[in-house]
Design a protein around this nucleic acid. Structure first.
Lengths: 151, 151
DNA sequence: TGATATCTGGTAGATTCTACCAAAACGGAG
DNA sequence: CTCCGTTTTGGTAGAATCTACCAGATATCA
């Protein structure tokens, strides 16, 4: 489905999401029209789900971030769906994964400062029904924040 | 430093990193030239650190991902620097954060299948000097994988 | 107020996009 | 191997876009 030339394109567009079609065609070694059609196909098939500017968190004024381990009291769809729905619409939550292990969910949360994080917990997290336990691990240093899949 | 109009631009470019300057200028309500100059300034000042195509992990053939909690034996710069250097160049490691709490580091790792993950542990992670403990939490479901800061 | 620096919107040539075309490459069926 | 239908390719041209400049407006501060 995704073949070698496509992977080259994806790798390149992950590195530079605003590369012109001409640059792209040259680096992957095909004509501009062939390249353009492949990119379009990747977009329409949903392999490329979108494009985004990568914004430097601290420079943009978000000084605080944390990783949360969340466990639910019970795992009825009712509670799970409610949890997922709330997390989805809360923009401070950049990532949320259901995982094996002690906690049910791993969340990464980004806010402007500790005060905002405190409010996030009080006004949002602790009010979600069916939460058993929340453990906060404050992020001391971002070693690496990548988005590019390792083709 | 980053003012209100800039935040509008950043928000929009996070949503659509390939928006044309004209679209952008219209949605944030300024002239194309003023908008273009602001974008350029945001790029050059490093607030915008780059652009990336967002690739659907599973559709692109990466079926397996996990969150790792890693602790180091000792925290001399020697070991820390070595750990950081190795993690930086290993492309399966999409994210790595130094955190408070039990583990020293939280990593998110993406691979094609469980076999590749096993190799990742054996050939990479377990060979890093000074590792005390590695706990794997397999990601069962990606609820949310966002990159956009919550302006 | 006046001088200076900064920002604004508009413009035009250069670049790039994108929908089309005919030709080439591919893949079975006979 | 040859034929025919399908898919993919490279090229092209008009439309859209970018980007470096301009003169004028606005802000800053002594």
């Amino acid at each position: 489905m995704v073949e070698e030339q496509d992977e080259k394109i994806l790798a390149e567009l992950q590195k530079d999401g605003r590369a012109t079609n001409q640059q792209l065609a040259e680096t992957v070694g095909m004509s501009t029209s062939a390249c353009w059609r492949r990119v379009r196909a990747l977009e329409e098939s949903g392999v490329i789900s979108g494009y985004s500017a990568l914004v430097a968190r601290e420079r943009a004024g978000f000084a605080t971030s944390a990783i949360l381990h969340v466990s639910l009291e019970r795992h009825d769809t009712k509670f799970v769906d409610e949890f997922v729905a709330r997390v989805m619409q809360r923009r401070e939550v950049l990532e949320c994964f259901a995982t094996t292990g002690d906690a049910d969910y791993h969340l990464r949360v980004v806010v402007r400062d500790m005060d905002a994080y405190n409010r996030f917990l009080d006004e949002f997290m602790f009010r979600i029904p069916g939460i058993r336990h929340v453990r906060t691990n404050v992020i001391l240093k971002e070693i690496k924040t990548g988005v590019a899949l390792p083709f």
